[in-house]
Lab assay of single mutants.
Amino acid sequence: MAAAAAAGAGPEMVRGQVFDVGPRYTNLSYIGEGAYGMVCSAYDNVNKVRVAIKKISPFEHQTYCQRTLREIKILLRFRHENIIGINDIIRAPTIEQMKDVYIVQDLMETDLYKLLKTQHLSNDHICYFLYQILRGLKYIHSANVLHRDLKPSNLLLNTTCDLKICDFGLARVADPDHDHTGFLTEYVATRWYRAPEIMLNSKGYTKSIDIWSVGCILAEMLSNRPIFPGKHYLDQLNHILGILGSPSQEDLNCIINLKARNYLLSLPHKNKVPWNRLFPNADSKALDLLDKMLTFNPHKRIEVEQALAHPYLEQYYDPSDEPIAEAPFKFDMELDDLPKEKLKELIFEETARFQPGYRS
């Protein structure tokens, strides 16, 4: 834990890192770190609560700039109880001085990944967590956004079992017609939660990839272990087919990539493993919904509104309290091709509203 900075004593240090967030945020305490930044909790002297502050230093890398800009653009436009918001952003007053960006968010005690390492969940908890994931996802999908990296560590939890989806750095506007060349190379989302079509096709992607990830998360809540822990690309596919069985001819016809289709045709026939054999203690309604989410063919996979209306979630289902976005989200430009200098300018502009004396 960093010592509390005395008023006016300059930035606090946390594990050798400068955290320049005073005077409003003090009493910093280390939480963890990701690929390009550290997260601390801090005391907000204005709202009198502890908050989470993520320090991001992305400006050396085009990919990190892209992810940072995506996350900020999306989260500043989203407003939903099951999606983490941005409360404040701290950065230098000029673009030349801006080396880091500090993002202030609600402090959540833990995440689903940490929880599943230590606790076996009751059916009631599984049901409530799944409902909140789908409630947040309904809003995301209504904005025409794909999260693309749903996994237990991106689901934040607090002691009252509130759940918030975080990390929109890989999110995209849904565009089933656009052929994202190089899709697989830039697709760094965790393999275990990846839909089979991501490994088999490169053309376009749809909201059904997020539903697949939610199915993987439900299976993990039922058993405290990942359902498809593939060691590499082909191993991942083999794990999936080992449980779902061989795809039907109709399902194979959806695979545009001939090499991928021929690979699947070359494999020995596998039978589907019954879900109640894998999860003998699970609620039968939970397994019915799991089956509809972990469907090989993305066109037959359940959609988020149908999933919310499934009998497993009937005690929570309330369409009048499951809000959607006001308007579909649009990125003005494809960020993939922009140089990091341009992305830095866009991050600077996007964060201006939090600067003292800002006038829109």
Score class of each variant (00 low, 15 high):
residue 139 Y to Q: 06
residue 112 L to S: 08
residue 260 A to F: 06
residue 233 Y to L: 01
residue 115 L to G: 14
residue 342 K to M: 14
residue 347 I to A: 12
residue 306 Q to H: 02
residue 211 I to G: 02
residue 103 I to D: 06
residue 343 L to F: 13
residue 189 A to M: 08
residue 254 C to H: 03
residue 62 Q to I: 06
residue 326 E to F: 15
residue 5 A to F: 15
residue 273 V to Y: 12
residue 17 Q to C: 14
residue 25 Y to K: 05
residue 315 Q to N: 10
residue 24 R to H: 06
residue 61 H to Q: 02
residue 43 Y to G: 14
residue 312 Y to S: 09
residue 332 D to L: 09
residue 131 Y to C: 08
residue 19 F to G: 03
residue 19 F to T: 06
residue 82 N to S: 07
residue 263 Y to L: 02
residue 157 L to K: 05
residue 43 Y to W: 12
residue 321 D to Y: 00
residue 123 N to W: 07
residue 31 I to Y: 14
residue 104 V to Q: 06
residue 80 H to N: 06
residue 74 I to S: 07
residue 41 S to R: 13
residue 83 I to Q: 12
residue 82 N to Q: 08
residue 218 L to E: 02
residue 115 L to S: 15
residue 161 C to T: 14
residue 209 I to C: 01
residue 281 N to E: 09
residue 267 L to T: 10
residue 151 K to H: 06
residue 57 S to K: 13
residue 127 C to G: 11
residue 12 E to M: 13
residue 318 D to N: 00
residue 16 G to K: 07
residue 330 K to F: 14
residue 304 V to S: 11
residue 280 P to W: 09
residue 319 P to I: 10
residue 247 P to Q: 05
residue 350 E to G: 14
residue 3 A to Q: 13
residue 113 Y to G: 09
residue 50 R to V: 09
residue 95 I to V: 08
residue 116 L to Q: 01
residue 133 I to M: 10
residue 360 S to Y: 01
residue 65 C to K: 15
residue 83 I to R: 09
residue 301 R to W: 06
residue 265 L to M: 04
residue 131 Y to V: 07
residue 257 N to M: 06
residue 351 T to I: 09
residue 135 R to E: 10
residue 246 S to D: 15
residue 151 K to N: 02
residue 180 H to S: 05
residue 193 Y to A: 02
residue 274 P to R: 10
residue 50 R to A: 08
residue 340 K to N: 00
residue 11 P to N: 07
residue 54 K to L: 05
residue 52 A to H: 10
residue 338 L to V: 13
residue 28 L to A: 09
residue 241 L to A: 07
residue 139 Y to A: 10
residue 232 H to G: 11
residue 146 L to V: 07
residue 284 S to V: 11
residue 273 V to H: 13
residue 191 R to W: 07
residue 50 R to Q: 10
residue 107 L to H: 11
residue 80 H to A: 12
residue 196 P to Q: 02
residue 224 N to T: 03
residue 64 Y to A: 05
residue 257 N to Y: 00
residue 255 I to Q: 07
residue 295 T to Q: 10
residue 31 I to N: 01
residue 2 A to Q: 15
residue 41 S to W: 09
residue 17 Q to K: 05
residue 288 D to N: 01
residue 295 T to R: 09
residue 41 S to L: 08
residue 194 R to V: 03
residue 298 P to K: 05
residue 291 D to F: 07
residue 46 V to D: 00
residue 58 P to S: 04
residue 73 K to A: 03
residue 326 E to K: 02
residue 164 K to T: 10
residue 17 Q to A: 09
residue 92 A to R: 14
residue 253 N to Y: 02
residue 258 L to H: 11
residue 181 T to Y: 07
residue 328 P to E: 07
residue 273 V to D: 14
residue 332 D to K: 11
residue 346 L to C: 10
residue 236 Q to W: 05
residue 43 Y to R: 11
residue 78 F to D: 05
residue 336 D to E: 01
residue 113 Y to F: 01
residue 217 I to L: 04
residue 328 P to N: 11
residue 86 I to M: 11
residue 177 D to V: 01
residue 52 A to T: 01
residue 209 I to M: 04
residue 172 R to Q: 01
residue 4 A to E: 15
residue 169 G to Q: 05
residue 273 V to N: 15
residue 255 I to D: 11
residue 73 K to G: 04
residue 353 R to S: 01
residue 294 L to W: 07
residue 72 I to M: 04
residue 33 E to L: 14
residue 157 L to H: 09
residue 151 K to Y: 05
residue 67 R to N: 15
residue 162 D to A: 09
residue 40 C to V: 09
residue 291 D to Q: 08
residue 42 A to M: 11
residue 38 M to W: 09
residue 261 R to Q: 01
residue 188 V to P: 07
residue 196 P to L: 01
residue 22 G to L: 12
residue 107 L to R: 13
residue 312 Y to F: 00
residue 241 L to S: 03
residue 207 K to D: 09
residue 185 T to C: 02
residue 109 E to R: 08
residue 353 R to W: 14
residue 70 R to D: 08
residue 107 L to K: 12
residue 196 P to M: 01
residue 291 D to Y: 00
residue 263 Y to S: 10
residue 281 N to M: 11
residue 136 G to H: 09
residue 3 A to I: 15
residue 147 H to R: 01
residue 74 I to M: 10
residue 158 N to Q: 08
residue 36 Y to M: 08
residue 102 Y to P: 04
residue 253 N to V: 05
residue 77 R to P: 11
residue 226 P to C: 06
residue 19 F to P: 02
residue 13 M to S: 06
residue 349 E to H: 14
residue 128 Y to W: 13
residue 313 L to K: 05
residue 110 T to W: 07
residue 63 T to I: 07
residue 338 L to F: 14
residue 338 L to Y: 12
residue 132 Q to W: 13
residue 205 Y to P: 04
residue 344 K to G: 05
residue 205 Y to C: 03
residue 291 D to T: 11
residue 318 D to G: 11
residue 12 E to R: 05
residue 176 P to R: 03
residue 218 L to P: 01
residue 311 P to H: 00
residue 238 N to M: 09
residue 85 G to N: 15
residue 212 W to P: 01
residue 177 D to Q: 08
residue 269 H to K: 07
residue 251 D to P: 06
residue 309 A to I: 15
residue 166 C to T: 03
residue 136 G to D: 07
residue 56 I to W: 01
residue 27 N to V: 12
residue 274 P to D: 09
residue 336 D to L: 12
residue 282 A to W: 14
residue 187 Y to I: 09
residue 87 N to R: 14
residue 320 S to V: 10
residue 150 L to H: 08
residue 216 C to A: 06
residue 57 S to P: 15
residue 154 N to H: 02
residue 39 V to R: 05
residue 45 N to I: 01
residue 92 A to W: 15
residue 181 T to H: 08
residue 315 Q to V: 15
residue 326 E to Q: 08
residue 213 S to H: 04
residue 145 V to R: 05
residue 102 Y to C: 03
residue 285 K to Q: 06
residue 177 D to L: 06
residue 211 I to S: 04
residue 4 A to V: 06
residue 98 M to T: 12
residue 343 L to T: 10
residue 251 D to T: 11
residue 224 N to P: 12
residue 295 T to A: 06
residue 253 N to R: 07
residue 201 N to E: 06
residue 226 P to D: 04
residue 189 A to G: 09
residue 25 Y to C: 04
residue 65 C to P: 07
residue 172 R to A: 02
residue 172 R to W: 05
residue 227 I to A: 14
residue 135 R to M: 10
residue 135 R to Q: 12
residue 310 H to L: 00
residue 319 P to V: 07
residue 170 L to A: 05
residue 188 V to E: 03
residue 116 L to Y: 08
residue 37 G to Y: 01
residue 48 K to C: 08
residue 304 V to C: 11
residue 190 T to E: 02
residue 321 D to W: 13
residue 343 L to Q: 00
residue 176 P to C: 04
residue 212 W to A: 03
residue 39 V to D: 05
residue 312 Y to P: 04
residue 359 R to D: 07
residue 318 D to K: 14
residue 48 K to V: 11
residue 65 C to I: 07
residue 76 L to N: 15
residue 133 I to C: 10
residue 263 Y to T: 07
residue 257 N to P: 11
residue 80 H to L: 00
residue 181 T to C: 07
residue 48 K to E: 03
residue 150 L to Q: 01
residue 210 D to R: 02
residue 124 D to I: 13
residue 152 P to L: 03
residue 157 L to E: 02
residue 322 E to M: 15
residue 271 N to T: 04
residue 102 Y to E: 07
residue 26 T to Q: 08
residue 248 S to V: 09
residue 53 I to E: 03
residue 97 Q to W: 14
residue 268 P to G: 14
residue 77 R to K: 12
residue 309 A to H: 14
residue 19 F to E: 04
residue 180 H to F: 04
residue 210 D to E: 03
residue 320 S to A: 12
residue 178 H to K: 05
residue 199 M to R: 05
residue 65 C to W: 14
residue 311 P to C: 14
residue 300 K to A: 11
residue 320 S to P: 11
residue 60 E to N: 14
residue 60 E to H: 15
residue 71 E to W: 10
residue 314 E to V: 03
residue 193 Y to D: 02
residue 109 E to L: 04
residue 103 I to C: 06
residue 236 Q to H: 02
residue 198 I to E: 04
residue 331 F to V: 03
residue 293 M to G: 05
residue 177 D to P: 07
residue 271 N to H: 05
residue 356 P to E: 11
residue 320 S to L: 07
residue 218 L to R: 04
residue 178 H to T: 05
residue 112 L to H: 10
residue 205 Y to R: 01
residue 202 S to A: 05
residue 230 G to P: 09
residue 254 C to R: 06
residue 187 Y to M: 05
residue 13 M to E: 03
residue 24 R to D: 13
residue 306 Q to T: 13
residue 136 G to L: 04
residue 356 P to F: 15
residue 164 K to M: 07
residue 59 F to S: 03
residue 341 E to A: 13
residue 6 A to F: 15
residue 344 K to F: 09
residue 20 D to I: 08
residue 328 P to F: 04
residue 182 G to K: 07
residue 102 Y to D: 02
residue 187 Y to G: 07
residue 328 P to H: 00
residue 282 A to F: 15
residue 38 M to G: 05
residue 145 V to C: 14
residue 316 Y to M: 11
residue 130 L to S: 07
residue 20 D to L: 09
residue 342 K to T: 06
residue 151 K to I: 06
residue 270 K to W: 11
residue 319 P to G: 08
residue 334 E to I: 15
residue 242 G to I: 14
residue 275 W to E: 05
residue 247 P to I: 14
residue 276 N to P: 11
residue 27 N to P: 10
residue 90 I to W: 15
residue 23 P to Q: 15
residue 140 I to V: 08
residue 172 R to P: 04
residue 17 Q to P: 05
residue 285 K to T: 08
residue 80 H to I: 11
residue 91 R to L: 01
residue 250 E to L: 14
residue 24 R to S: 00
residue 72 I to R: 02
residue 25 Y to N: 01
residue 122 S to E: 08
residue 261 R to F: 06
residue 67 R to K: 01
residue 70 R to L: 01
residue 166 C to D: 06
residue 94 T to G: 11
residue 229 P to C: 09
residue 203 K to F: 06
residue 360 S to V: 08
residue 298 P to F: 14
residue 28 L to E: 12
residue 113 Y to T: 13
residue 85 G to K: 13
residue 49 V to I: 13
residue 72 I to Q: 04
residue 144 N to A: 10
residue 138 K to Q: 05
residue 140 I to F: 00
residue 165 I to N: 00
residue 83 I to G: 14
residue 101 V to N: 04
residue 108 M to D: 02
residue 114 K to C: 06
residue 252 L to V: 13
residue 156 L to V: 11
residue 16 G to D: 10
residue 250 E to Y: 14
residue 117 K to E: 07
residue 33 E to Q: 13
residue 357 G to R: 12
residue 140 I to E: 04
residue 21 V to T: 08
